[in-house]
Nucleic acid binder design. Structure first.
Lengths: 149, 149
DNA sequence: TGATACCCTACCGGCGAGGTAGGTATTTCG
DNA sequence: CGAAATACCTACCTCGCCGGTAGGGTATCA
């Protein structure tokens, strides 16, 4: 197993918000009930999504959450990263500030980490697919906004 | 984080066995020392690798482990799966006996799981790269068996 | 026969995932 | 103006499993 339920639940919330995509905020209670997930736990997840500027919130009665952007402009890489933290297949592999890939085991410059190539490839594959998939790709066609003709 | 150190350490062991690729068994103590990893823990991991028929063992003095096949014929998908178990990005997604992808949340046939598409893509990306990469791809060129000329 | 190594089972501590609880702040509605 | 509805925050709890240890077999070689 790889991603926790944070990613699973959080993605569900995002999809649900996209499905109802309007200017009316959707209260979290509705989503929790619809998906059969514990409300109190979802609150933690939406907090992460909000801090990442993926959703907006309206407090008070008739309040709730809305997408911060159009579903087409939200990549699943953003969503998953907001929920799970940095995407890395194993602990020692992460992206450096410079954009490259660093391996924490590679302290000795002379001793190149032989397994780095593998985990780099895996990481790229995951990030690539997550980036190529937008939130709009996940909402059922029958609910999709008809795009001209 | 996604894979545990089981995959990390296990892959290192496999690479080390491939590097020394010969008919002389390599004792685990040497690998543990070379990689700076706890021997007792590695024993658990190699047990998994052996049960998956990826390595062979010679007991007794001058014993150790050898690759069961040529490094070119061992895919990293086999290795990782032996170490970590079934590869699934999240709990509800796994491969069915028929080869397809099943989602455990999809009990109601009328209610299609909207997030299934995403996790299916991610899973495919991971399995694909792991399958395309062989153990031979990870051994440094300078240690590689010179292939004619 | 002793040293070397694989092999098996059992155990354990820490940590994070998954979830609960309770309170506070803010907005709408009657 | 209340009261209901909702977001928001902090603290806490429980349980499984990861990473690792311990200790004893059993096979093989010198």
């Amino acid at each position: 197993m790889m991603f926790s339920t944070k990613a699973e639940y959080g993605v569900r919330v995002m999809v649900e918000l996209a499905r109802r995509g309007g200017d009316q905020p959707v209260p979290l209670t509705e989503i929790a009930e619809h998906e059969g997930l514990p409300l109190a736990y979802l609150e933690h997840l939406v907090a992460r999504l909000r801090r990442a500027d993926l959703i907006e919130s309206r407090r008070g009665a008739r309040g709730g959450y809305l997408l911060a952007r159009a579903a087409e402009d939200i990549t699943m890489a953003e969503v998953v990263e907001a929920l799970e933290g940095t995407i890395a297949p194993i602990e020692c592999i992460s992206s450096s500030p410079g954009g490259g890939v660093v391996c924490s085991r590679e302290t000795d410059p002379e001793h190149v980490c032989t397994t780095k190539l593998l985990w780099t490839r895996v990481r790229f594959a995951i990030v690539h697919t997550l980036t190529e998939t937008t939130l709009a790709d996940l909402i059922p066609a029958n609910r999709k906004k008809p795009v001209a003709a």
